[in-house]
Amino acid sequence: MSDHIQPIRGPVTWDAGQKGRWSIDGGRLGLLAAITVVLAAIVHLVTILVIPSFATRDAWSRINEIAEPIGITLLPRARPGDEVLPGLDPAIVYGACLFDLNQGPFAITAPMPGDYWSVSFHTREGIIFYAVNDEAAASRRFDIEIRNAQQMRQFRLEYPEPDEEILTIEAPGNIGFALIRALVSTPSLRPRVEAAVAATVCETFVPPPPVTEPVGPPLPRPSPLR
C-alpha cells in the first residue's frame, strides 16, 4: 500500500529525475490505474442515471409527437417498416391521451368491451404510476381522475367523503400520458375494439377563474337588533 502512496508525495523527484517523458514507475502506474477505474465507475453511474433525462426518442417523445393535444389518439396499427414505436404488440390496439396537470385535473372515462384491456398512466420520465386491467377493475366503472399533489389536497378539502364511482389518483409529475391497451383476439374483432378505444373520453378540467366572493349560501350575520 505504501508503494502506491509514495509516488504521489514525490512528483518533484519524478520531474527532477530527468527521466523520459513517458517512463512511469510501477507504483505510480498502479495509482493512475486505480484513479482511472474509480473515475470510469463514476462516469458509468452518472451516465446511466442521466440517460432517461436526455432521451429524445423515448416512448414519451414519440407519443407526444403523434398524439393530439386534446382527446384520445389511436396509435396506428403496427406494420412492418411503419411502426410509430418499436416493439408494439400487433395484437393490441393502443390509445394514448396526453395530460398536463398544470392546466387542471385530468379525467379519463371509457366503455371497455372486448377481451382484455388495461389503462396505465405514464409520466414524462417513463414511470408508470398507476395501472389497472379489466379483471382488477371489474367492480368499478372505468372512471379515473388524475390530480397533482396540490389539486389532490384541494379536492380532499372540497370532498372529504371518498367517491365510490370515481377513482382519484395522485400523479408524481404534471406531464405524461394515459395509455389504453385492448387486445384483438381475432382479426375480425379489430374494428370493434378500435371503435371502443376511440370512444374513450379524456378531458382536462380547466378550473373556473378564481372568484373573490365565497361560493355557497351567505354566512348568517349577527342580527343588529340583538
Binding site: D58, P86, S118, H122, G126, I128, A131, R181
Partner: peptide
C-alpha cells in the same frame, strides 16, 4: 427503455 422507446408493461398489466 428510454433508449429503445419501447412502452413498458407494468406488473399490474402483465
Amino acid at each position: 427503455f428510454s433508449r429503445t422507446g419501447e412502452l413498458p408493461i407494468s406488473a399490474a398489466e402483465g
